[in-house]
Design a binder for these strands. Structure first.
Lengths: 101, 101
DNA sequence: TGTTCATATCAAAAAAACTTGATATAATTT
DNA sequence: AAATTATATCAAGTTTTTTTGATATGAACA
């Protein structure tokens, strides 16, 4: 069952929210090192986009994955992240059920 | 315009979430002191329900009001709170728009 | 195999959120 | 007007979350 408080907490940090929007609008990695044909966003892109250090990105991506809003796909030494729209859909829907909207 | 991060933060505290559910299911104040014909929930009820001290309830109700999820109605020396379903509806809907669900 | 590169984890520091007890304000009642 | 009652606010303490720098792990490649 979906945990409203847990997902709300994941959404409640401005940086994490921006990362989610970035995942949503992602068109392909432009970073020279990474493989551009991967669907997800890699850590290096997020670091560049927001000027964040590596461990900070790692921390927030873990939070997002554990909330269920993001899926990670390891590929060699990289990791690619994709938005799990279904989780957001479930969250939005569940709010409607619980609060009888 | 509705602020996703702000509302998420309001929803991300377990106590506040429980208070919202309490407001949702409220049928009328059972507390002896208060006027039972008011639609909302008063502070004393919330204190009783969760065994919270007054200043703690006050703090969380302020958070909920400022997020827009709850409306307060002063009535004499009391204050009655009601759930603002419309705000939750907007939040849920806006998530759908932003994340193209 | 040893080096390099990407990510994970850890411990310490910093910041933010929450809780509490004391006091203030404001309406009500005696 | 004074005492009572409900809520607000404040400052201090506590807990949780976030950030950072250092180090560890694990894959890729020379």
């Amino acid at each position: 069952m979906i945990d409203i408080v847990k997902i709300s907490k994941a959404l409640s940090d401005p940086i994490r929210y921006k990362i989610l929007l970035m995942l949503l609008n992602h068109k392909g990695c432009t970073s020279s090192q990474c493989e551009t044909d991967m669907k997800g966003v890699c850590n290096c892109e997020i670091m560049e986009e927001f000027g964040m250090i590596q461990s900070r990105v790692s921390y927030h991506m873990k939070e997002l994955c554990e909330s269920g809003l993001v899926t990670e796909m390891p590929k060699g030494k990289w990791k690619y992240y994709t938005l799990k729209k279904e989780a957001i859909r479930e969250y939005s829907k569940e709010l409607g059920v619980i609060f009888q909207l």
